[in-house]
Every structure is written in C-alpha cells, then in structure tokens.
Write a protein that binds this DNA or RNA. Structure first.
Length: 545
DNA sequence: TTGCAGTCAATATC
DNA sequence: GATATTGACTGCAA
C-alpha cells in the first residue's frame, strides 16, 4: 500500500522528511542497479549512510543517464530541503568530496569510466552526451544541487567569465562541454544569473556545474584540450567532407546532434523566425506598461492591430515579463553588492551588462522605476539608455519598483507577512512603472497601448496583488527570505561549503545584507501599505517611492 | 488554462 | 568568429 501510494503520488523532495526520502533514494539506487549491495542501511541511520552509499555509487552510474530524466519525479521542482535533513556533515561531505576531487567534468567523461566514444565518434567534439559532466552523471549532480548550500550565482558567473575570457575559451565550448547548454543559453546565464533562491532545482544545476568546474584545478586545461580536439575533428571532417564532395552537412562545428532520430530531416522547411519591428516592440511595451497581464481579448486585439499572431503576442509577453524579472534580479544583486562591497568587483562584464539591457528593451519600465527610486531626485527619466548601472546603490526602493515584475515570485512563497491582499493573482495589479508616465502619448503604434490601457483600467488601478509580490520578491526576500535554501545553507555543515569552494556562498551575503535588508523591508512595507490603500480607494495614484 | 522557468536556436551585433 | 538578443517551445505547477 505504501508503495502504491508513493508511486502514484510522490511528494516533492522538499516536502519529504528524512525518513520519507529514504524510499526515493532507494528507488534511485535501484534504478541505477546499485541497490542490493547492502549499502543502504536500514532505517534509522540513513542520514550519513544513505548519502554515503548514494555517493559512493555515483560513478558507476550508467553514463547514459544524462540529466534530470533519471531522477525521481520528486525532485522536480523543489529546492534544497530547507532543513537539510541530510545535513549530517559526513554524508554531505562524502557527497561533495566526490565531486570535488578530480571531479573534472570533462575528465571523467573522457578518460574516466565510460570509455567514451572520444576518439572515433567524438569527432565532433560533442561527446555523445550533451552533458559531459557525465562522470558524475545526473544523479550525482542533482544530489549536489539538492544539497548544495546557497551559491552566489553572480559570483560564480563572474568568475567563470573571467576564466573563460582569460583563457580565450568560448561560451559555446564551455556550454556544450561543461554545462550541456547551447551558447545562447550560456551567454544569457552568464550575463544575467538569477539569484540562487529564485532558481528551481533545474535552474541551479548549471551553477553547480560551474562551481564544480571552477573547483577543478585542471578545468582550463581540459577545456583547452577539448578545444583542440574539436578543432582537429572539425578539420578532419571538413577535409573528408570536402574531398568526398559531400554536400556537407550543416556547418555546426561541435555538434552532432544530428544523431537524433531522424538523420537530419532534410532541411525541413523551417518556419522563419519572427522578428518584431521596433514599432511593434514599442507598441507591445506600451501595452505591457498598461497591462503586464493582458487578457486574451487584449492579446487578440493587439495581435490584430499589429498584425501578428496571437501566439507571438503571448510569447512576447511571457518573455518580456520573464526577462524583465531577470533584469531586476541582477539589478538587485548589483545594488546589493555595491551597497556593500563598494566598488569591489564590478567586472567589466557587469557594467556592460546592465546598460545593455537598456537597449530600451528589457525593462524600460523597470529601469525607470529603479532610477526613480534610487535617485529620489532622479526624475525617472525612464529613458532606457541612461547609464542606469551607475545609479543603483542602495537597493531599497529599487526593489520596490522593480517589483514591477509582478507575481512571479508569488509562487515561491506564500504571501509574505500579513500585509497585502492575498489576491495577488489579480491581473495587472502591479503598480506600473511610475516613471513611464502611463502610456501617455500615442507613439508609433498608439492603439495597442490605448487598447491595453483601456480594457481594464479599473483593475489596473488596484494593484492589490502587487503587495505581496513586492514584499516577497523584493528585498527581504532576496537576501532574507530564505527562500527555502538559505536556511539550509546556513545550517549546513561547513564541509559542504568548503567542498563547494564557497567563499561566496550566499549565506555569507545574508549577514552582510542586514542593514540594507531592513531598509528594503521597510520600504516595501510602506509600498505595500500604499498599494493596499490605493486598492481600496481605487483612485489613480502617483507612484513615487 | 495560464504563467513561468529553462532552453533552444535563429539572428543580430560586436 | 564569438557573444548577445529574442521568439518559440517544453514541461510543470497551480
């Protein structure tokens, strides 16, 4: 009966107690064919032992098991157990130790166990497995992810970027070899890392991989080797294909994805990529400003007016919301780090990064908001182009505004402290970016904006929903609200941290954020308060925080 | 159903 | 050629 129940209704990892997790670990081991070695001590003492066994079995994992697929559903979207039951230092240690050691991503996959098709088939650099980290395979990495203390994603990406540039290693190579991601994803990840607590388990994986990679003393060498091999393979292939007068396959260098099911369905007619015209984007942005969560009808209208497919409009909104959110994250981080460490780091990358976002795109509204917030004096000047980067400092207010990215956060946590109405679900509740001066003037494509604005003006006036969102997401959350992992991290045995080489584990950050956090919290509270008031009043308000 | 996270992959830019 | 941007897609959760 228990089994049946467990199989049909597995609880997420994070919701499981220590004891409750055991069966899943057993199942995983069983799936890996590792059970039976008596490694799993029965009950009671699973803490250390279980993990021990788990880790000790890592390597033997079938290399085939690449990422997530192999994990029990349970781990789906949970975050590191808040209370890291398995915190027993020894277990943790054993697990991470494994990783730490010559944990070389490439390495293992290469010389390690799986004979690795390196030579023959590997011609394409692209080892058969997208995730060369293979040696430790999915389970391992996922275990690590689940148990990892809070990592400083920003710091990690910063270091990775440094290493890559210093050694002239490309994102593509790094991504495909170490992370199992494409260049675009890597670029995005490196440029706009999300804070650890905002990441899902899956989203954390790349960061753990990066951390592991950074910890590997031979990381660069290995990647260099890879690069060489790739080059060689490329040349070889090129020659052969040329001489063979082969029509030659798609140029993709290090990719042999083609191996997939269909041997490259002849250049099927790829649908052309939609490229929105600047005016269209403008219109959409304006519409967004009016209603970040447009109703289906609005979307449709927008689509017809702009002559786009509704799906395109929908996608655009999704993407825009999500990207704005991310912009906010990094701003948050930057603001935080600047506030603290002062000029400290701020690698080139960063400045260059924040600004670009300005491209107008990403977050007009947002940025404007931030500015306004920060520089009290700063008259919003929404102008995206503005060297926003410079402005941030104390994240306080900024946070608020940027909360602009509404409910996303909701999900992670329950509406924080009492305050704001729980009905965050609302729709366009957010206090839109103040600066923006409500889609005032018609622009290139006024209609859409108006349209959006119009539709439920009423609703939009009552930003009730935002309240909670703001609170949560905003400052307090980032640094304080443990977003599940934080506490765990804090409590976690130092061994793990050291193993992870966590000089920058966010845990540390927390403590140093305190003052700032308070400030932010206070600010957010006031915002929430106002939002509530506004909501009940229903009168247009001027947002200035 | 809707929204979101995470990605891919085509393009644009540098 | 490398990196950045961005529309679209997948899978998942509420």
């Amino acid at each position: 009966g228990s089994v049946s129940d467990m199989l049909s209704r597995p609880k997420p990892w994070s919701k499981l107690t220590q004891k409750g997790r055991e069966p899943f670990i057993r199942m995983q081991l069983w799936l890996n064919g590792e059970l039976g070695q008596g490694v799993l001590p029965v009950q009671g003492q699973q803490q250390g032992p279980v993990l021990h066994s788990v880790t000790s079995l890592q390597d033997p994992l079938p290399q085939g098991c690449v990422s997530s697929e192999s994990t029990p559903k349970t781990s789906a979207s949970c975050s590191p157990a808040p209370e890291s039951p398995m915190s027993s230092s020894e277990s943790v240690k054993s697990l991470t130790e494994l990783v730490q050691q010559p944990c070389p991503p490439i390495d293992t996959s290469k010389d390690g166990k799986p004979p690795e098709p390196s030579d023959p088939p590997a011609p394409d650099s692209q080892p058969a497995t997208p995730l060369p980290l293979s040696g430790h395979s999915a389970l391992s990495i996922q275990e690590l992810v689940a148990m990892s203390p809070e990592l400083d994603t920003y710091g990690i990406t910063k270091r990775v970027k440094e290493v890559l540039t210093d050694n002239n290693l490309g994102q593509r190579l790094f991504g495909e070899t170490i992370l199992g991601l494409t260049q675009g994803s890597v670029s995005d990840l490196l440029a706009r890392p999300k804070p650890w607590h905002k990441l899902s388990l899956k989203g954390r994986e790349p960061f753990v991989r990066m951390q592991l990679w950074l910890n590997d003393p031979n990381n660069v060498e290995k990647l260099m080797d890879m690069k060489r091999m790739e080059k060689k393979a490329y040349m070889k292939r090129r020659h052969s294909s040329v001489s063979d007068s082969q029509p030659c396959e798609p140029p993709s260098v290090g990719t042999d994805y083609s191996q997939g099911a269909s041997p490259q369905p002849q250049h099927q007619l790829k649908k052309p990529r939609v490229v929105l015209a600047p005016e269209e984007k403008e219109a959409l942005k304006r519409a967004y400003q009016q209603k970040p969560y447009p109703s289906p009808k609005t979307i449709e209208d927008l689509a017809t007016q702009l002559n786009l497919k509704t799906s395109t409009v929908i996608n655009w909104f999704h993407n825009y919301r999500s990207r704005i959110r991310r912009e906010l994250f990094i701003e948050e981080i930057q603001a935080g780090s600047q506030g603290q460490a002062g000029a400290s780091d701020s690698p080139s990358a960063r400045s260059g990064r924040a600004a670009p976002s300005s491209e107008g795109d990403s977050c007009d509204g947002v940025e404007a908001g931030v500015e306004a917030a920060d520089g009290p004096g700063a008259p919003d000047a929404e102008e995206p182009g503005g060297p926003a980067a410079a402005t941030k400092s104390q994240g306080g207010p900024a946070e608020a505004q940027r909360e602009e990215a509404p409910r996303p956060a909701e999900k992670a946590e329950p509406p924080s402290s009492g305050t704001a109405g729980p009905d965050d679900a609302d729709e366009e509740g957010r206090p839109r970016p103040p600066p923006e001066g409500p889609a005032d003037g018609p622009g290139p494509l006024p209609n859409p904006a108006a349209l959006a604005a119009g539709e439920d003006a009423a609703t939009s006036a009552a930003p009730s929903g935002e309240g909670p969102g703001v609170a949560r997401d905003g400052a307090p959350r980032s640094s304080t609200l443990p977003s599940t992992s934080a506490p765990a991290a804090a409590r976690r045995p130092s061994s793990l941290q050291s193993l992870f080489g966590l000089p920058e584990a966010a845990g540390a950050r927390d403590s140093r954020d305190n003052p700032l956090r308070k400030k932010k919290a206070a600010n957010l509270n006031s915002i929430i308060h106002r939002l509530e008031k506004a909501a009940s009043r229903e009168e247009p308000i001027e947002w200035e925080f």
